[in-house]
Design a protein around this nucleic acid. Structure first.
Lengths: 139, 139
DNA sequence: GGAATCCCTATGGGTTTACTCGGGATTGGT
DNA sequence: ACCAATCCCGAGTAAACCCATAGGGATTCC
């Protein structure tokens, strides 16, 4: 029941961008240094986040990345979904999937997985980058 | 954010045992057939569950597996922990681990992961096999 | 004794993870 | 015009993990 480094690094990088929001783009190198993440690897994650529309990139010298929206409008769940895929403990309770489930007992476990999915979604979608910035400030 | 087949199969197998609780041991073959799980693979999972004390095994002809406790006393969280490891989205919020975390921003994300862990734990530890049996009965 | 069981270790193919590498495209500063 | 700082992209890779499969050994009921 772990998220991978993609989700972990992604959230950390996005928090970094959130803390510098409104002050121009932040270069990858700086994010990677501050968060101690392999630069080349983080680059791939940022590419994914950019294609998903969560960050904008500015190419060339003095370029870098910045959030596509204010921190208060970006939910952690969005980041996770982009980098880790659907938030669902098992495939058959993914959003939008409605498989004809054969085993009737399986449905009992399915209710369980749905409850788990919902509680995970609740936490991840009720927290924004702005919330994490506040948390960071009060530490 | 997926559990593996170990957790899935494990819960399904345990539910099968719960539904036959008090009626003698159920052979692996039957569980595997009813739940459509590879027999040999399930055997390994049952071995793990047995060594963890969640099921008892009866060897020899007419043998099989049975729950070590009544269904109402076995939480899904116990099964998951045995088969999947600690319930924690990231390593640093595992129970009993208190790492000196270097990055102060990391602590902001750590609060998030703790909230996620807690909400997952809440669901999994508040549901017992008896609850799943009820769910199954009312379908 | 034999069939039905559980028990154990080893192995293997496929996928995923977490990177690394090398080069190309774009842009600001001088 | 040039150069350095950036982002962009695709390939490659070693290790780990997942999901089994294989084959035999030990135990117990009938």
């Amino acid at each position: 029941m772990r998220i991978s480094t993609r989700g972990k690094y992604g959230v950390r990088a996005m928090l970094e961008l959130a803390m510098g929001y409104g002050q121009g783009p932040i270069p990858l190198k700086v994010i990677a240094e501050r968060q101690q993440i392999s630069e080349h690897y983080l680059e791939q994650l940022m590419g994914t986040l950019r294609r998903a529309g969560l960050v904008n990139s500015v190419r060339g010298a003095q370029g870098g990345y910045e959030l596509a929206f204010p921190p208060g409008e970006i939910k952690i769940g969005q980041i996770i979904r982009v980098l880790e895929g659907p938030i669902a403990p098992v495939e058959c309770v993914e959003d939008g999937v409605d498989p004809a489930c054969e085993r009737f007992e399986a449905c009992a476990t399915r209710l369980l997985w749905e409850r788990l999915r919902d509680s995970m979604t609740e936490v991840l979608d009720s927290t924004t980058l702005a919330d994490l910035c506040e948390d960071a400030a009060s530490l």
